[in-house]
């Protein structure tokens, strides 16, 4: 109506034809001091923590590249005078555990043969479990879910002996299949929880739309849900791979010496009491065993971030 009423407020703000209207004093972004007490404390603490964690790693890498004579000098922090990869070769191919002298390579392949199927089986089952619990509420689904979660809190040690008996009765004790089965089952509670919570967070209307479109249980799972859940599959894969690779307890209980996973074999190499302690070989063996989880973190960590960014569709 009366437009002139509002004009004086916004009108003259746009001038500036004859010089700046700015006055001396604060302007634009507030400057931040780099060396403020807050920054010193934060970065100082972070730096100390990083050093605290990195020094052992440094010592290990350096020692694994030295020959035994050099190690006997005792300067554990000094870099190697002469770099040698012999300890790494020995750890991989020649180190002895008991009667076997083919190094860690045997354990490595055992671990691969345990980890890969366990991860695939547990993720496949857990993702379907989580999807069913999140989207297809059935009678008693809440109770089922509660039981599953309680399962996550029962200490493993309690169940070892019963499982040994069960595996023996099934004829799987001592074989890789038995261990794969155990890993798959023990991963179930936490993996199902992970997938259920992710699927619950997806918009329910997508599921409803798919049902109206006539898609059934598996069609919705494979064609709608799965393509949207790359991030959670990556998270789940990281957790399962590193968890199963690093497992020692189940490995030592449920396998025989020729099927020992890498962790158990590493322990046997490092803790063998006969002969000279070959620190450089032990360090190299430890680094080799730890390399797989480390690579998984580095590779899929980036994938994970990308997955989240790609999967985000604003409502």
């Amino acid at each position: 109506m009366d437009k002139s009423l509002t004009m004086p407020i916004s009108g003259p703000a746009i001038s500036g034809s004859n010089g700046s209207r700015l006055q001396a004093g604060p302007q634009g972004k507030r400057p931040r001091k780099v060396l403020s007490p807050r920054n010193i404390i934060v970065y100082g603490a972070l730096g100390l923590a990083a050093i605290y964690y990195l020094i052992p790693l440094y010592v290990m890498v350096v020692t694994s590249l030295k020959g035994m004579p050099e190690i006997r000098l005792g300067n554990i922090f000094s870099p190697p005078m002469e770099i040698t990869f012999e300890p790494w070769v020995k750890a991989w191919a020649q180190a002895c555990t008991g009667l076997n002298c083919d190094g860690l390579s045997r354990g490595f392949w055992n671990s691969v043969r345990i980890t890969v199927p366990s991860v695939i089986v547990s993720i496949a089952i857990a993702s379907v479990n989580g999807y069913a619990l999140a989207n297809w509420r059935f009678k008693g689904s809440e109770i089922f879910f509660t039981i599953l979660i309680v399962g996550a809190f029962i200490p493993y040690q309690v169940m070892i002996y019963p499982i040994v008996i069960v595996l023996r009765e099934m004829g799987l004790y001592g074989s890789l299949y038995g261990l794969i089965l155990v890993h798959s089952i023990f991963g179930m509670p936490i993996q199902t929880l992970l997938f259920r919570n992710y699927f619950v967070s997806l918009p329910e209307e997508l599921f409803k739309a798919a049902r109206i479109d006539g898609a059934g249980f598996w069609q919705i799972y494979f064609r709608i849900m799965l393509p949207m859940s790359l991030p959670i599959f990556v998270v789940s894969m990281i957790l399962q791979t590193t968890g199963i690779w690093n497992d020692f307890l189940f490995g030592v209980v449920f396998t025989r010496p020729d099927t020992y996973p890498m962790t158990v074999q590493l322990n046997n190499i490092v803790n063998s009491v006969q002969g000279v302690k070959e620190y450089n070989v032990n360090m190299a063996a430890t680094l080799l065993t730890g390399a797989v989880p480390l690579i998984v973190y580095f590779v899929s960590g980036r994938l994970f971030v990308r997955g989240i960014a790609a999967g985000a569709v604003k409502g």
Binding site: P203, K208, A209, I212, D213, A215, G311, V313
Partner: peptide, 24 residues
């Protein structure tokens, strides 16, 4: 049915979204 949040399948193109029910 048409939903408030559109509920389009994010990984499919518009064409695939439209035809999903028919393909099923």
């Amino acid at each position: 049915m048409v939903f408030q949040s559109y509920a389009l399948y994010p990984q499919m193109t518009v064409e695939k979204n439209l035809s999903f029910g028919l393909r099923v």
